[in-house]
């Protein structure tokens, strides 16, 4: 596989906004927008895993779909490096987009609903190869068997249907399908949350192994922070469609700088009973209405540090001096960091 080390990121998103109109009133006029992704900028380097964390409804999945252009973002740039060129996916024609999409693949959360029950494993994994590479019969079988070996599925199950497989095995089928076209970037949306504990570690190891073998980049979306910590090189924390903090895993865990990251991370229960009663920052239960976001910093109604400036002005992601590549969107980051 081509590897290009001119220091440029494989994927770079600039000021991405994805809004959904809410129709109200008699004539169905659009009066409000749900800002699912609101001014998000981030990048993913080659052979790197970016973990995206946040509560449900924070826009993680919409972000992934926007990158694929499955949901059309309304503003911003999605820059994808293709050989020596850098393409803005938002500006491509449908045909060009199709050829680029080969390089970006998704792994879905629910291995039960993301596989067509009427297609055999061969057809599921082979479909992208058939459509994009025109492989047929024997050649297709060979390639599918290779992929099955890659993800740890026994090739003798080639003609079986999804119902015959367990959750972990189905997720392996989904991974094989995603890898079929040799993608550069894989967007994994909660790939282990439907799996049992003992299966979860098998899938995480598989993803890591495949990354090394094929030089993959991952965007790994999960609400399970201990998994994100384990698998990611860098982490992005989202809240109500906004990026609150991003940086190397070591800088975000165990604490992070943003008050939201801190609350989120402190809420993870530890599987070590000696650490119980560690301090948990409890957030109150106010749920943000995505169609009616608070003014200023979206987190201010739940933030214990909030001051006037937080209510009035929206903070932008700014670099933190002390650690490289670490950026925080908080007016009070100097003050918070002292606590």
């Amino acid at each position: 596989m081509l590897k290009n080390n001119n220091g440029q990121s494989l994927l770079k998103i600039e000021h991405l906004r994805t809004y959904f109109p809410v129709n109200k009133g008699f004539f169905g006029r659009t009066q409000k927008y749900i800002k699912a992704v609101d001014d998000v900028s981030l990048y993913i380097n080659e052979n790197e895993t970016l973990g995206v964390v946040g509560e449900s409804g924070s826009g993680k999945t919409t972000l992934a779909h926007s990158i694929m252009m499955g949901i059309k973002p309304c503003e911003g740039k999605i820059l994808f490096k293709q050989g020596d060129r850098v393409l803005d996916l938002k500006k491509l024609s449908a045909k060009e987009l199709k050829s680029i999409r080969k390089h970006i693949q998704m792994i879905f959360q629910d291995p039960f609903s993301s596989l067509n029950p009427r297609m055999s494993v061969r057809d599921i994994i082979g479909e992208p190869l058939m459509i994009n590479n025109g492989l047929k019969r024997k050649k297709l079988d060979e390639k599918v068997i290779d992929l099955m070996n890659d993800v740890g599925l026994d090739p003798k199950y080639l003609r079986r249907y999804p119902h015959a497989f367990s959750g972990g095995q189905r997720q392996r089928i989904g991974i094989a399908r995603a890898l079929a076209l040799n993608p550069r970037l894989v967007l994994a949306d909660e790939p282990t949350s439907a799996l049992d504990v003992s299966i979860q570690s098998q899938i995480l190891n598989l993803l890591k192994r495949l990354q090394q073998k094929y030089n993959l980049s991952y965007m790994f979306i999960s609400h399970d922070l201990s998994i994100v910590k384990y698998i990611s090189n860098r982490v992005a924390v989202m809240y109500a469609g906004n990026l609150m903090e991003t940086g190397p895993t070591g800088a975000i865990f165990p604490g992070g700088l943003h008050p939201y990251s801190r609350a989120l991370l402190s809420a993870i229960p530890s599987p070590d009973p000696h650490q119980r009663n560690k301090e948990v920052i409890l957030l109150d239960d106010q749920v943000v209405d995505p169609a009616d976001l608070p003014s200023g910093c979206v987190f201010h109604p739940r933030c214990r540090y909030a001051e006037d400036i937080c209510r009035q002005k929206k903070p932008h992601l700014e670099p933190v001096n002390s650690s490289k590549g670490h950026r925080v969107a908080c007016h009070l980051k100097e003050k918070v960091s002292l606590n």
Partner: peptide, 21 residues
Amino acid sequence: LDSLPAREKDAEYLKVIKGSV
């Protein structure tokens, strides 16, 4: 317990339980 990422201390790969239930 060993298969939990949170208990694994910087290991390259997680320990797994082979097979499934």
